[in-house]
Amino acid sequence: MFTPSGPPRHGTPAVRDAALARRGAFRLAWPDAARGLAISLVVLYHATNWTWSTGYEVSVLREVNETLRSLRMPLFFAVAGMFAGKWTAVPWSRLARGKLLHFAWVFVLWEPVSLVVRLLTGYYQVADADWGTLAHDLAWSLLVPRSELWFLWTLAAFFVLARLLRPVPVPVQLLAAAAVSGWALAGWEPESIAWRGTAQFAVFFLAGLHLRPLLERFAERVTWLWALLAVGLWLGIQIAVRDLGLADIPGLYLLANVAGVPAGVAVSVLLSRVPGALGLRWIGARTLPVFVTHTSVVLALLCLLYRNAVWVPAPQSQWLPVVLWAAAIGVGLGLGALAPRIGARWLFAPPRWLAGSGRVPTSTRRATASPG
C-alpha cells in the first residue's frame, strides 16, 4: 500500500476532526443564542403588555416591543424549522409519539394552569369570566387555544404541515406559505391566536426547514459590518411600513418579518461569540419551562402588587416589566432544573413509557429539546 511521504493535504485526522467539531459547535452556538434571544423578547413583550393592562405607564417598552414584533417570532420559528428536518421523513407513528405527543402533553398539562391563574388574578380578558367560562374554554382548547400556549399548538401544526407537504416542490411550499403569511400579517384576527400564528409564521418554519444551509452559510460569514447592515435593513423596512401606515396592505409587513430573520441571526451570531453570551445560549437550550410558566409568574406578581396597594409611579414604572421579565425567566429556569431532580420530569415532557419508540435519539435530543 502506498503511503504519502508528506503530511495529509487537509491535515491529520485528529486536526481535521477537531476543525469539524469546532465548526459543529459554532453551528449549535448561534441557534441556541437565537432561541434564547427570541424567548427573552417574548417574555418581555408579555410582561410589558400585562403591566400596561394593569394601569402602569410603560409606553417606552411598548414602543420597543412593537418594533421587535417583526423579529422575535420569525426568528424563533425559522430556527425551529432548521432542526425539524429529521421529522419530515419519519413514519407518522414516530412523528406522533416522538414530537406531537410532546407538544400535546405539555399543552394539556399547562393550558389549565395558565387559564386558572388568569381567572384567579383577574386577568382572564373575558368580560364576567367565571369557572363556567374556564370549563368551556378548556373543553375547546385543543381546537381553540386561549393562552400564550398557542405557540405549542402552532409548532405541532407546523410539524404536521411539513410532513404533509413532503411531496410538494419546495418553491411551491414557500410561495404558498408566503402568500398566506402576507395576508395574515396584514391584520387577520380570527377567534384564536393559534390560528393566526399558524397562518402568519408557517413560511418561516418552512424556510428554516428547507433553507437551513443558506442560513448557516450566512451565519458563518457574519461580521460586525454585515450585522449592522442586516439590522439596519430590517429597522428601515419595519419603521417605514409602520410609520407610513402600510402594515395593513397584504405582503408589506411580511417584508419586515422576512428582513427580521437575517437581522436576528446576525445578532445571535455576534452574541454567541461573547463569552457567556449573556446567558442566552443557556436559556436557548431550556426555553420550554420558561415559555410555559412565564405568564403565570408575571400575572401572580402583578396581582400581588395590586392587591397590596403597591404602586410604582412613572417614570420608574417603565422598569417594572424588566423586573417581571427577570423574575419570570428565573422561575422558569429554576423549575425546569428542579423538576427532574424531584421526579417531576413529567411537568415538561411525557413519561418515557408513553413516548416509547418515538423518543428522540440522544445525539439529536439537545437540538430538539426546546419547542421546535
Results as ranks from 00 to 15, higher is better:
residue 301 L to E: 08
residue 340 P to W: 08
residue 21 A to N: 14
residue 251 G to P: 01
residue 344 A to D: 02
residue 145 P to R: 04
residue 126 V to A: 10
residue 228 L to S: 12
residue 85 G to Q: 11
residue 115 L to T: 06
residue 334 G to N: 05
residue 249 I to Y: 13
residue 152 L to K: 04
residue 261 V to H: 03
residue 156 A to E: 01
residue 197 G to I: 01
residue 369 A to M: 05
residue 196 R to Q: 13
residue 248 D to Q: 14
residue 238 Q to G: 05
residue 123 Y to W: 07
residue 335 L to Y: 09
residue 79 V to K: 08
residue 315 P to I: 02
residue 340 P to F: 10
residue 247 A to L: 03
residue 232 G to E: 00
residue 43 V to R: 05
residue 133 T to K: 05
residue 167 P to R: 01
residue 309 A to H: 15
residue 102 H to K: 12
residue 89 A to L: 12
residue 285 A to K: 14
residue 218 F to M: 07
residue 202 A to K: 10
residue 156 A to W: 02
residue 280 L to M: 02
residue 201 F to N: 02
residue 98 G to R: 06
residue 283 I to K: 01
residue 93 S to H: 14
residue 196 R to N: 08
residue 257 N to W: 09
residue 273 R to K: 12
residue 166 R to Y: 02
residue 223 T to K: 04
residue 172 V to S: 08
residue 170 V to F: 07
residue 149 L to K: 01
residue 76 F to Q: 04
residue 165 L to D: 08
residue 143 L to A: 14
residue 338 L to K: 04
residue 348 F to Q: 09
residue 91 P to W: 00
residue 305 L to R: 06
residue 267 V to G: 03
residue 125 Q to G: 10
residue 75 L to E: 03
residue 34 A to F: 02
residue 333 L to I: 14
residue 26 F to L: 14
residue 4 P to M: 04
residue 344 A to W: 14
residue 54 T to E: 15
residue 132 G to F: 09
residue 365 R to E: 14
residue 367 A to Q: 10
residue 136 H to I: 02
residue 114 S to Y: 11
residue 18 A to I: 03
residue 55 G to S: 07
residue 210 H to P: 04
residue 241 V to P: 08
residue 89 A to K: 06
residue 289 P to Y: 00
residue 190 P to V: 15
residue 119 L to Q: 02
residue 278 L to T: 08
residue 130 D to H: 00
residue 369 A to E: 11
residue 141 S to D: 00
residue 370 S to G: 11
residue 47 A to K: 02
residue 78 A to T: 14
residue 201 F to A: 03
residue 267 V to W: 03
residue 308 N to R: 09
residue 61 L to E: 05
residue 191 E to Q: 10
residue 372 G to L: 02
residue 148 E to H: 12
residue 70 S to G: 05
residue 276 G to T: 06
residue 38 A to I: 04
residue 92 W to N: 15
residue 49 N to W: 13
residue 359 R to E: 15
residue 299 L to K: 07
residue 17 D to F: 13
residue 336 G to R: 07
residue 277 A to P: 09
residue 108 V to L: 13
residue 202 A to N: 06
residue 233 L to D: 00
residue 198 T to M: 13
